[in-house]
Structures are given as C-alpha cells and as structure tokens.
Simulated scan of single mutants.
Amino acid sequence: MARGGINKALVQKARQVILTRGENPSIDAVRVELGNTGSKTTIHRYLKEIEEAERGRQTAPSLSEQLGNLVSLLAEQLREEAQAAVAQEREQLALERLDYQDQIRQAESRIEQLEGQSSTLGEQLNAAQQTLQHEQQKCQQVELENARLAQANADLEMRLIDRDSQIASLEDKHEHARDALEHYRQASKDQREQDQRRHEAQVQQLQVELRQLRQTLIIKQDELTQLNRDNARLLTEARQMQKDQRAQEQHLTQKTQALEIARSTLTGMERTNDALEQRCRALQDEVARLGEATDAQAQRAQGLQERLSEALAQLKLLRHAPPAVPGNASSP
C-alpha cells in the first residue's frame, strides 16, 4: 500500500533527531531522515512553522498561548493523521475497485465467448437437423422406389403367368390341330405343314420373349437387392447422425451450464462492488465525524483558554489588591 504522505509532527520529530545529533536541520537533512519522502516545499513550510513556534516560545509566551499551541498542534496532527488514513483507505478502495472491474471485464469477455460458441453449436445443430431431414427424405424416396419395383415385379410375374397360359393354350390348340391334321393328313398335308411351321415359329418367339422376361426379372431383382443394401446403409448413417446430434446437444447443455456459472460469478462480483461502495460511504461519514470531533475539541480548547484568561485576570486582581490592616476591622 502507498504511504499517505508526511505531516508536521513527523517533520518536527525528524528535526528534533537531527538537532540531538548536533547537526543543522536543513530541508535535505530532514527529507533524508524521513526516508526520502515528502516534497521540499512541504518540508520547508513545516520547518518554518516549527521555527516560528519555537521563536514564539523563546519570547516567554503565556500559559494560554502554550496551551493553545499545544491544542492546535494536536488538532492539526489529528486531522492530518485522519486525512492520511482516509487517503490510504480511498487508494486501497480504488485499487480493489480496479481489480473487480478487471474481473468483471474478463467475465463479460468469457460470457461473450460462450455465447459465440453457443451460437456456433446452434448453427451446427440446425445444419445436422437439415441433413437428417434430407437423408430421411432420401430414405422415403428409396422406399417408394422399392415399392414401385416390387409392383413392377408383380406385374412381370402376372405377365409371365399370362404368357404361360397363352403357351398352354397354344399347345392345346396345337394338339387339337394335330389331331385334326391326322384325320385330314392326306387331304391337307401341305396346309398342315405350313400351319406347323407357323406354330413352331410362334412357339420359338414366345420362348425368346419368356427368356427375355426372365432375364429382365433377374436384373430387377439385382436392382432391388442393391436398393435394399443402400437403404440399410442410409439407415445406419441416419442412426449415426442421431448419435452425433445427441452428443452435440449434451455439449451445448454443458456450455449453457458454464454460462450460468459465469453469470452467477458476475452477480457475486456486482454484490461485492456494492459492498465496497457502502464501505466507502461509511468511511466518508467517519471522516465527517472526525472533522466534527476536531471542531468540538477546538471549541473546548477555546473555552479552556477563556477560563484560563479569567483565572489569570482574577490572579492579577488578587496580587494588586491592598493587604488588610489589622485593628480596622469592626468588632462583632
């Protein structure tokens, strides 16, 4: 803590020590004795007041003057000590206030940083939610595509059944035609052979179409299998994104709790600052009370000086009063 300064009593004490050593109490000597503190102007003023007081005492001052000087010196010393104490307290309070203001600024900076992190995490969470919605939409589209392919597969199976029915019907017709040709072999041999060739061509064509339909069905089944695999992969990615989202939400909760703790710390600092301001006001009231006490002591000293003057006046009257003559007093 910084020193509160010098006063007249310290200067007088240092001057007396220098005189005791038999040295000249100059301004520099007194300042060295005080520990190289205080301005030379102040030391010079105090030395001048002390020397004038001593010259006044050397001219045989009265008792009332000595008492007044003593009371004035004590009052001056008391006021200077009180002012020095108040100055020290004010300086300490100023240092403490600066310290708390630095802490408050650091807390505000930390709060701004946490709020920025919270905003960033919120943006990341929104982006993750949008990505999850997009993936869900893709999953829905894949499911719709699977349903469409399943319907197409069912349609192909129905077409195969129709083709099989047509082939069976043609085979039946062929049997009937062959039976009929047996009856008319001799009469319509050429016609029968022509019909048989046409029928065989149709059968071959139908067989070719059947093979093509079966190959198409195999391809569609492979595509359906691949789509099922993609759907499983997308579901796995969606679950992983949900886990990441929950982790980000927990991290955001931790950041929010840290922000609440910082805000509580800031509230405590504000309360401490209010307490320091109340203490400062109390010290100011104490300074005012000390000033009033000093004024009261000065009034008491003035009253004592007046009473002493009256006592000295009565003493002078008693000294100058004529002595009583024996025998002149009337007998009772």
Rank of each mutant, 00 (worst) to 15 (best):
A2C: 05
G5E: 09
G5V: 00
I6N: 02
I6S: 04
N7S: 08
R15W: 04
Q16W: 02
V17D: 12
V17L: 15
T20H: 11
R21V: 01
S26A: 03
A29L: 12
R31E: 10
G35V: 12
G38K: 06
S39H: 03
T41P: 06
T42A: 14
H44E: 14
K48C: 06
E49L: 11
I50H: 05
R57H: 02
Q58G: 01
T59G: 14
A60W: 08
P61K: 00
P61D: 00
L63V: 15
L67A: 08
S72R: 12
S72V: 10
L73T: 08
L74I: 04
L78N: 11
Q83F: 09
A85R: 11
V86C: 03
A87R: 13
E89C: 09
E89D: 10
R90C: 03
E91K: 15
E96L: 06
R97G: 14
R97H: 04
D99P: 04
I104W: 03
I111N: 08
E123T: 12
A128N: 03
A128F: 13
Q130C: 10
Q137N: 09
E143G: 03
L149C: 03
A154Y: 04
A154F: 05
L156E: 00
E157V: 10
M158D: 15
I161K: 15
D162H: 10
S165K: 14
S169D: 12
H176I: 02
H176N: 01
H176W: 04
L181V: 09
H183N: 01
R185V: 08
Q186G: 15
S188R: 08
R192V: 14
E193N: 01
Q194S: 12
Q194H: 11
D195G: 00
Q196G: 05
R198V: 01
E200C: 00
A201R: 06
V208K: 12
E209G: 01
R211Q: 10
R211C: 13
Q212K: 14
L213H: 08
R214Y: 01
R214V: 02
Q215L: 12
T216A: 14
L217E: 12
I218T: 09
I219D: 07
K220S: 09
L224T: 08
L224S: 07
L224G: 10
R229A: 15
L234T: 05
A238E: 03
Q242D: 11
E249A: 08
L252G: 05
K255I: 10
K255Y: 05
A258T: 00
I261E: 10
A262F: 02
R263H: 01
M269Q: 06
E270D: 10
E270Y: 11
R271E: 08
T272Y: 14
N273I: 14
A275S: 14
R281M: 02
R281F: 01
A282F: 03
L283R: 03
D285N: 08
R289K: 07
R289G: 04
L290W: 09
T294R: 14
D295I: 06
A298K: 15
A301I: 06
G303L: 02
L304D: 00
Q305K: 07
E306F: 02
S309P: 00
E310V: 05
A311H: 07
A313L: 04
A313R: 12
Q314W: 10
Q314H: 03
L318K: 07
P323C: 01
A324D: 08
P326M: 06
G327H: 00
S330H: 15
S330N: 15
